[in-house]
């Protein structure tokens, strides 16, 4: 990840070496701020945006500790301590949502995460650059389609009365409908994720492959390594740092498990299979008016996500990586 360390130490000649600048050092903080007053006209609007729309809502999580109703507001609602959390943890629906969330998250991690690596390796091993580019054009596209479109398209292909059901009907097998089958629903969710994002995910791995020095391949070839062995012992190790970084970046949102995707399909496949923490928050909180319990569930998810990010980061550092926080500013 040496490239990341360059983020700030870019080619700005005037700041790269900490050269002594006696004239500058005399400036007080106020003088320096005055000198850069124009820079603040760029920063202040954006900083205010993040303050209001990212940090103020975090305060809104106090609802989790209140008997909140929109009518009484934050100030007028009574504080109930951890009652919402107790109610939440004894609610069978939350436990079901938590279980579904975890199962889908693990399936995504095991099946959907490595998929782009495999596809990138396959495409990289193609000899023809033109074929490679053509395939890329096709497989990137689904990433840009909304979940509503993706589910709609899948419905037309895999749903009852869809393309495959029609073909099977013709063969004498009736009643095919992959979209409403609760038993296989979680695998369907993962398949949809792979269909939508696997191709796009290869971009970053292609870049990592391009960054592997050619002489390593040459040395391996001279030592008698065939194409498979070069991939196994040169390319794959070269992808580990990027894969680790991506894993850390994704792990914080792992419990989000395709919220829109599940929300859209829940009416078709039923709650038992498709209820996850986020859909619980939406249905019970926003639609059901049980603000306290729903916010508590959202907060639980947020806290788990934060813990996972920090843990993954520490783990990556222990393995000898740089972690993410070191190299970012």
């Amino acid at each position: 990840m040496s490239a990341q360390a360059e983020t700030d130490a870019g080619p700005r000649a005037d700041e790269a070496p900490p050269k002594p600048a006696p004239a500058r050092r005399k400036l007080t903080l106020r003088q320096r701020m005055w000198r850069e007053r124009w820079a603040y006209t760029f920063i202040v609007p954006g900083a205010l945006f993040f303050l209001v729309f990212a940090y103020v809502p975090m305060l809104g999580n106090v609802v989790a500790f209140q008997d909140y109703t929109p009518f009484r507001g934050f100030g007028g609602s009574t504080w109930v301590g951890l009652a919402n959390f107790e109610a939440m943890l004894s609610d069978p629906e939350v436990l079901m949502a938590l279980r579904n969330t975890l199962i889908i998250a693990v399936l995504q991690l095991v099946l959907a995460f490595p998929a782009p690596i495999a596809l990138a390796l396959l495409l990289d091993s193609l000899m023809s650059a033109r074929v490679k580019r053509m395939v890329q054009t096709v497989v990137y596209l689904p990433h840009f389609l909304s979940w509503v479109i993706v589910i709609s398209v899948w419905q037309q292909v895999f749903g009852g009365g869809g393309l495959i059901a029609g073909v099977l009907d013709g063969l004498g097998v009736s009643g095919f409908d992959a979209m409403t089958n609760a038993d296989t629903f979680k695998l369907l969710v993962v398949a949809q994720t792979i269909w939508k994002d696997c191709g796009w995910g290869t971009i970053i791995f292609f870049a990592a492959i391009a960054g592997i020095p050619q002489d390593r391949y040459e040395a391996a070839a001279i030592d008698g390594a065939g194409a498979w062995q070069r991939m196994r012992h040169v390319t794959l190790p070269g992808l580990v740092p990027v894969a680790t970084l991506l894993l850390i970046l994704n792990i914080g949102s792992i419990l989000t498990v395709g919220f829109e995707q599940l929300l859209l399909q829940q009416p078709m496949v039923g709650m038992d299979a498709a209820e996850v923490l986020d859909t619980f928050v939406y249905f019970r909180g926003v639609l059901g008016g049980e603000w306290g319990i729903a916010t508590a569930a959202g907060l639980l998810k947020g806290v788990i996500g934060t813990v996972l990010v920090l843990a993954a980061n520490r783990f990556a550092k222990r393995l000898g990586g740089e972690g993410i926080f070191l190299c970012r500013h």
């Binding site: 209001v52 103020v56 809104g60 999580n61 914080g252 603000w291 959202g298 947020g302 996500g305 934060t306």
Partner: peptide, 13 residues
């Protein structure tokens, strides 16, 4: 990028 408030606080805002 790592910590976000959740659906309900955003809705209330």
């Amino acid at each position: 990028m790592f910590f976000s408030a959740g659906i309900i606080p955003n809705f209330l805002l």
